[in-house]
């Protein structure tokens, strides 16, 4: 089975072009960040990107427009990454409907634990600290694939791939339905990390480093994503 590569980008005026470059470079899915003023799950790079996006006026409606514009340019699935504060203000049902009509294939809410708002269908996240019971519940209710948070911490590049990933992936394999894909994210930044993570999981998610590279423009991003693609494809 082909391992999947997910690239995270923050909503913004340049993002449709960046998304097209990421897709050209070989991204299988794009996670689109909706900026929030107080993002508890995010490290400094994504936090700064969110501050910039907000100062450019990227509020929920503008992010949905950005999503629709990306949908017009790329074929890969698109997933908004959106904090519960934004959903609370916009309305859960209204958000799901508007995101779907803008071209989203699922949503991801980093601060909504699996047992709250069960009616809101979303990609669930599990962490190394999650109990077996919670992993089972997340796997049973997730929308398409399960997000393995590789470490206890916030988003952002680390020097090494978290050693907690292997144990978490093993537990999740055991507890999840047999065909459920498991994608690993948080702290994955280099092609070496991506390859190592792809040997454990079915897909890898790269965020902070992609945001940093994207600051140098779409061509740099395309090349960086290609290098990740090659590493992920080389995984056993």
């Amino acid at each position: 089975m082909n391992k999947k590569l997910v690239i995270f980008l923050m909503s913004g005026r340049e993002t449709p072009e960046l998304a097209a470059a990421a897709a050209q470079g070989g991204a299988d899915l794009i996670e689109l960040g909706f900026p929030f003023s107080d993002p508890l799950a995010d490290g400094p790079v994504i936090r700064r990107a969110a501050e910039r996006a907000l100062s450019e006026g990227m509020r929920t409606k503008a992010c949905l427009e950005c999503l629709a514009e990306i949908r017009g340019r790329v074929q890969v699935p698109l997933v908004p990454f959106v904090y519960s504060a934004l959903l609370e203000a916009y309305g859960h049902k209204r958000f799901v409907a508007d995101a779907a009509s803008a071209g989203a294939s699922a949503i991801l809410v980093p601060d909504l634990p699996v047992d709250s708002h069960p009616e809101l269908r979303r990609i669930q996240l599990v962490a190394p600290t999650s109990t077996d019971e919670r992993i089972r519940l997340a796997a049973a209710t997730t929308d398409g694939w399960l997000y393995l948070v590789t470490l206890t911490g916030t988003t952002g590049a680390r020097t090494e791939l978290s050693s907690a990933l292997a144990g978490l992936a093993e537990r999740a394999r055991h507890l999840a339905p047999p065909e459920l894909p498991l994608y690993a994210g948080f702290g994955i930044s280099t092609p070496e990390h991506a390859r190592a993570a792809a040997e454990i999981a079915d897909g890898v998610i790269v965020g902070s480093r992609a945001i940093e590279v994207a600051e140098d423009g779409p061509e740099q991003l395309r090349r960086y994503v290609s290098s990740l693609r090659e590493s992920v494809d080389a995984a056993r």
Binding site: L40, A41, S84, A85, P110, D111, L112, P113, V114, S116, L125, V126, A127, P128, T129, S130, T131, R134, A138, V149, T152, G153
Partner: peptide, 12 residues
């Protein structure tokens, strides 16, 4: 009220 935090914190 409630708990609107990343999953990592729930067990804690």
């Amino acid at each position: 009220g409630g708990r609107y935090v990343p999953e990592t914190l729930i067990p804690a």
